[in-house]
Design a protein around this nucleic acid. Sequence first.
RNA 1: GUGGUUGUAGCUCAGUCGGUUAGAGCGCCUGGUUGUGGCCCAGGAGGUCGGGGGUUCGAGUCCCCUCAUCCACCCCA
Length: 430
Amino acid sequence: MGKLEPLPGTSDLWHPEAAEWVRLENTARRVMGLYGYAELRTPIIERTDVFVRGIGSDTEVVQKEMYTFTDRGDRSLTLRPEGTAGVMRAIANQGVGEGEEKRVFYCGPMFRGERPAAGRKRQFHQIGVEAVGKLTPLLDAESMVMLFDYLRAVGIDDFRLLLNSRGTREDRQDASRTLQEHFRPHVEEMCEDCRRRLDSNVWRILDCKVEACRGFVAQAPPIVDLLSETSRAYFGQVQRALDAFGIAYEVAPHLVRGLDYYEHTVFEVVSDSPHLGAQNALAGGGRYLIELPGSRKPIPGVGFALGMERLMMARHRPRQESPGHGPVDVFIAILGDQAEVCALQLSRELRARQVRVLCETEGRSIKAQMRTADKCGAELAVIVGGEELAAGQVTVKYMRESRQEQIDREHAAPSIAATLGRKEDPEGMY
RNA sequence: GUGGUUGUAGCUCAGUCGGUUAGAGCGCCUGGUUGUGGCCCAGGAGGUCGGGGGUUCGAGUCCCCUCAUCCACCCCA
């Protein structure tokens, strides 16, 4: 216990779970790659205004959840609370021409100063994508199809896609007035936050979970009804495209999401898995128009982010205990000081042939060494002792078959490597 | 930020109404005659009972504070 625990809301991730995470990421690289998305790695830390202007200053995230500090040059920096703003900054920095499109995939840690709970960490990890530069309903739909493909590829199928549209900025100005008129007569009966939101940001009222407010939200007109003709047409096209792809969705009339930059399509994937707890949103995203310092005009894009912790929970792989070392193929047992040199040399020859080797380092009894050979999961145990040395041989024991044989020391390494048959390529550590 | 929950061995946990040397299972180590794993048997190591203060003859147990955990609210991935 003591002071060695990681900070609240953060955690150490050990093998073999760490390998499972890498697999989730690699599956994403592969599936997103099928749609032409390529990886972009941006810094974890950015100038604060990248997020304030990118995400919107009236959002929960920038108002009270960012890890912001001042560096020695007196600049205000923050640990990224989400991925889109940084990706857009990188793209704007490189420049996007009129009509040009960029498709990027990213993954990594994000930071938010919230109270930890099931499926919510202060350092959490996202896999995300952004298709930037184009504004078409088909692209929005394709993004959601890709999300479906990915979820199924990692073995998740009990989820629902929630869909809505918030229209354009002009639509929202009109809609805001309508919503304000709708809620104003009831302000006195609503919560403190909503009373403030009525004039500062009515949209946030739609997200309010306070019982009293929800009643009024339920009676509010569906957002879509408040949008312009063209925005509604856009939304209709998105739905038709999804139908054509055979993707099931539910229109959530008051889904608006917490980030200001969304325009038109917004969506969320919620899980019905019993392993999730209250935080059941696996992924969220939508179409956006984002403003960044230095860019002449807002840049359009569509994208979504998946929460890796929640993916892990939804898959519900039982927690395994860490064995303290990675998987190995061979354990080399040593009997007597004389055999040490031979054993160490053999271990190097094997590793040079991509065989994973654990070698005795303590000079314990043969019994203790064999016990280790068994517990470490090695397929073969190699015994090097006085008898073997004298005969110029080594003993190879097949642990699963309880059979053993002597082979010439000279050909030991190639022979063992051949026996194991190196099915994995050298880079395939996972 | 607000509520509640839990903190005892490496892990999962038991510990009665306060009572003297704090337990179990698993794991780990060593043995069970010569150089062979798993099963079994015997033994061993390992604990500031999260930390601090208080009440008491006596606190793992009761009280206060604190730290951490988990969960819910909230928010979102």
